Measured scan of single mutants.
Amino acid sequence: MLDDRARMEAAKKEKVEQILAEFQLQEEDLKKVMRRMQKEMDRGLRLETHEEASVKMLPTYVRSTPEGSEVGDFLSLDLGGTNFRVMLVKVGEGEEGQWSVKTKHQMYSIPEDAMTGTAEMLFDYISECISDFLDKHQMKHKKLPLGFTFSFPVRHEDIDKGILLNWTKGFKASGAEGNNVVGLLRDAIKRRGDFEMDVVAMVNDTVATMISCYYEDHQCEVGMIVGTGCNACYMEEMQNVELVEGDEGRMCVNTEWGAFGDSGELDEFLLEYDRLVDESSANPGQQLYEKLIGGKYMGELVRLVLLRLVDENLLFHGEASEQLRTRGAFETRFVSQVESDTGDRKQIYNILSTLGLRPSTTDCDIVRRACESVSTRAAHMCSAGLAGVINRMRESRSEDVMRITVGVDGSVYKLHPSFKERFHASVRRLTPSCEITFIESEEGSGRGAALVSAVACKKACMLGQ
């Protein structure tokens, strides 16, 4: 009897593995994704193909990295998701002549009506938060230079001027797309009239992360975010950046690689679950690469896999709870928690219980395998993109072996128990001629924006502006 049951459990697990095998990517698959990513990057950089390229390769006008001589107080704003952060950054000489960066910050959550109302409502709310922060720190009387981390696709015309191309991540505030974001912020500050600010720089969160990590390690020339969304930036040779005049030196390019796949480059790798996630998203047909990796989508992918296993009578005796059938019910943090389970399955059992399920031991094991399959594919897909960037940098610099540091931020990278190990191992397999160091950014977005502002202020002083 026991043997029969054991055989049935083994057969069930084997069927589960057959279904989950769809998520496995072979090294040849990853090399294919990497080569296609490089081709799209090239198209994004070139003037004649930029418009139709899915990977936009947006110039950021960040050319210099901090040298350690900029000092002063800077205000930093960070808008990239449902939370908005205001930070005071003091850049100065530390002990023994070292450079020191001290920060104080406060988080504000953005109400739904500000995210989806008008641009005026959104930026009025942001300036209200700045006003509140300055009151708390008794700094209303000071006109501070301000660095703005704005983590949406922007076409820069200068370091302090950028046109919002399109909202992502659930934002829909009308009247912002096609307009200068810094102008919208300046107008809102003017409307309030109770404080003055000098907006000197606007950067993407990947750029802010790279600059913040450069402060720790001067070989950091790539910034990457794996959180709600997924994106990367890197220092490109100016001669390859056709959208900006000049051939000397390097400029940081914001790849906006989340949109890779929007022209069909990933079609052969998309599964039924991916198509369902895409169809029910706020932007169907867009940001397809990001939807395979980002935390906004990972939990939902797992939920759809679990429903398939229920329908195949391989999980929960073929019956799903009402909660499990509800879109968004299986949160991405559950994926991390399930994979963090120590082996007694308590954590998995508790999560499934909150979803109205009474799982068996085998159910718990199957749910864990589903989570591992989805998150491992995410790590491997992400590795193909980064390997594409790094191999490109090595080739354009004609280096036999390139040493490089990548600064990384984002909740999936930082909080998932195995993502970074799987990701690092896969990147290294795909970049055999590179020695890569990964560092995690601390308060990256805010500190990085302030350091970019410090560079901009120093330049302005040198130019006598």
Score class of each variant (00 low, 15 high):
60 T>W: 00
213 C>L: 08
302 V>L: 05
393 M>A: 14
464 G>I: 12
180 N>H: 10
38 Q>N: 03
112 E>C: 08
414 K>D: 15
323 Q>A: 05
210 M>L: 01
223 G>T: 03
86 V>Y: 02
258 G>A: 15
273 Y>Q: 07
253 V>S: 00
68 G>S: 11
274 D>L: 02
156 H>F: 09
108 Y>C: 07
420 K>L: 12
304 L>P: 00
229 G>M: 14
380 H>F: 06
141 H>C: 07
157 E>G: 11
221 E>K: 04
45 L>Y: 04
440 E>G: 06
109 S>G: 09
349 Y>W: 01
8 M>L: 15
435 E>C: 08
12 K>W: 08
54 S>L: 12
126 I>W: 05
376 T>D: 09
239 Q>M: 10
269 F>D: 04
148 F>Y: 07
172 K>Q: 03
369 R>V: 05
415 L>G: 12
331 E>F: 15
114 A>P: 07
422 R>F: 10
402 M>F: 10
241 V>A: 07
107 M>L: 09
205 D>Y: 10
398 S>F: 05
23 F>I: 04
226 V>R: 01
245 E>N: 06
213 C>D: 00
174 S>N: 04
336 S>K: 14
422 R>N: 13
121 M>I: 13
108 Y>I: 03
392 R>Y: 08
391 N>P: 02
133 F>C: 06
142 K>Y: 08
272 E>L: 05
337 Q>C: 07
152 F>V: 11
406 V>S: 03
177 E>G: 07
369 R>G: 02
23 F>V: 07
329 A>N: 15
193 G>F: 01
294 G>R: 06
428 R>W: 09
182 V>A: 12
167 W>R: 13
238 M>P: 00
314 L>H: 14
377 R>G: 00
439 I>G: 06
187 D>W: 01
60 T>G: 07
199 V>H: 06
108 Y>D: 06
388 G>K: 04
137 H>K: 11
299 G>N: 10
353 S>I: 02
91 V>L: 06
404 I>E: 07
74 F>R: 00
187 D>G: 02
375 S>A: 06
421 E>L: 13
124 D>T: 07
279 E>K: 15
373 S>W: 03
169 K>H: 11
241 V>R: 00
94 G>M: 08
317 H>D: 07
295 G>F: 15
72 G>P: 00
161 K>W: 13
157 E>Q: 13
391 N>Y: 11
186 R>T: 05
39 K>T: 10
131 S>L: 09
102 K>V: 10
47 L>W: 15
26 Q>L: 10
463 L>Y: 13
304 L>R: 06
102 K>H: 03
4 D>E: 05
396 S>V: 13
169 K>R: 12
33 V>W: 01
152 F>H: 10
450 A>I: 13
222 V>A: 03
382 C>I: 12
247 D>Q: 04
191 R>G: 04
271 L>T: 01
322 E>N: 09
368 R>A: 11
424 H>P: 10
316 F>T: 07
3 D>N: 08
45 L>V: 08
246 G>A: 04
307 L>S: 06
174 S>K: 04
361 T>N: 11
107 M>W: 04
236 E>G: 01
8 M>F: 12
95 E>L: 11
344 D>C: 10
439 I>F: 04
388 G>H: 05
141 H>I: 02
123 F>A: 07
311 D>V: 05
52 E>A: 09
118 T>I: 14
184 L>F: 11
391 N>D: 11
242 E>F: 01
362 T>F: 07
409 D>A: 12
186 R>A: 04
238 M>S: 05
299 G>F: 04
158 D>K: 15
83 N>L: 08
387 A>L: 01
32 K>Y: 02
73 D>C: 01
296 K>Q: 13
317 H>F: 14
46 R>M: 13
39 K>P: 02
328 G>K: 11
206 T>A: 04
3 D>S: 08
402 M>N: 10
338 V>K: 01
36 R>Y: 03
119 A>M: 11
428 R>H: 10
254 N>D: 02
40 E>K: 02
14 E>S: 13
435 E>R: 11
195 F>G: 03
112 E>N: 07
356 G>R: 03
51 E>A: 12
406 V>L: 04
13 K>C: 15
290 E>P: 08
461 C>V: 15
411 S>W: 10
84 F>R: 00
345 R>G: 06
317 H>R: 05
392 R>K: 12
148 F>V: 11
416 H>Q: 10
144 L>V: 11
191 R>C: 03
219 Q>R: 07
217 D>N: 03
426 S>P: 01
200 V>R: 01
179 N>A: 13
268 E>R: 02
125 Y>H: 14
116 T>S: 13
122 L>H: 02
6 A>S: 11
210 M>H: 03
90 K>E: 06
131 S>N: 14
8 M>A: 15
32 K>D: 06
306 L>D: 00
286 Q>D: 11
449 A>V: 10
11 A>V: 14
26 Q>T: 14
81 G>S: 15
461 C>M: 15
158 D>P: 15
185 L>G: 00
458 K>A: 15
454 A>I: 11
6 A>H: 13
415 L>N: 06
393 M>N: 14
409 D>N: 10
230 C>V: 12
193 G>E: 07
297 Y>M: 14
185 L>D: 00
463 L>K: 14
147 G>T: 11
120 E>P: 15
281 S>P: 06
329 A>H: 07
377 R>F: 01
356 G>M: 08
458 K>D: 12
453 S>N: 14
251 M>I: 15
383 S>L: 01
327 R>I: 12
100 S>T: 10
253 V>H: 00
275 R>W: 12
105 H>T: 10
69 S>F: 05
143 K>E: 01
34 M>N: 06
353 S>Y: 02
341 D>I: 04
67 E>R: 09
320 A>V: 14
158 D>Y: 14
255 T>N: 07
404 I>L: 07
236 E>V: 01
463 L>H: 14
19 I>M: 03
178 G>I: 15
385 G>A: 12
373 S>F: 02
209 T>F: 04
112 E>D: 12
164 L>Q: 13
362 T>K: 11
240 N>F: 05
281 S>N: 15
13 K>M: 14
174 S>C: 03
182 V>L: 14
287 Q>H: 12
432 P>D: 15
448 G>P: 13
456 A>L: 13
198 D>A: 02
387 A>D: 00
158 D>I: 12
205 D>S: 07
303 R>A: 03
164 L>M: 03
137 H>W: 03
311 D>H: 02
375 S>L: 09
20 L>E: 11
135 D>E: 08
165 L>W: 09
429 R>N: 15
464 G>N: 12
208 A>R: 01
111 P>L: 07
278 D>Y: 14
145 P>T: 04
388 G>S: 13
391 N>F: 05
41 M>F: 10
327 R>K: 07
96 E>C: 13
173 A>C: 05
249 G>C: 03
81 G>F: 14
320 A>S: 11
131 S>H: 03
257 W>G: 01
247 D>G: 03
393 M>I: 15
348 I>R: 03
127 S>M: 12
232 A>V: 08
354 T>N: 13
411 S>Y: 05
39 K>G: 04
232 A>I: 09
216 E>M: 02
149 T>H: 14
255 T>S: 12
244 V>W: 00
385 G>Y: 11
97 G>V: 07
443 E>A: 11
267 D>P: 01
355 L>M: 03
259 A>T: 14
356 G>P: 09
268 E>K: 04
239 Q>D: 09
17 E>V: 08
404 I>F: 02
104 K>T: 08
102 K>Y: 13
69 S>G: 12
105 H>Q: 03
447 R>Q: 13
181 V>S: 04
456 A>Q: 05
174 S>W: 06
12 K>G: 12
413 Y>G: 07
53 A>F: 01
442 E>I: 05
12 K>L: 14
351 I>E: 01
195 F>Y: 03
146 L>A: 14
2 L>R: 07
97 G>D: 04
260 F>H: 02
188 A>R: 04
42 D>N: 14
101 V>R: 03
231 N>R: 08
130 I>G: 01
21 A>T: 15
462 M>V: 10
17 E>L: 14
146 L>E: 04
164 L>A: 15
333 R>D: 13
349 Y>A: 04
160 D>F: 06
344 D>N: 09
301 L>N: 12
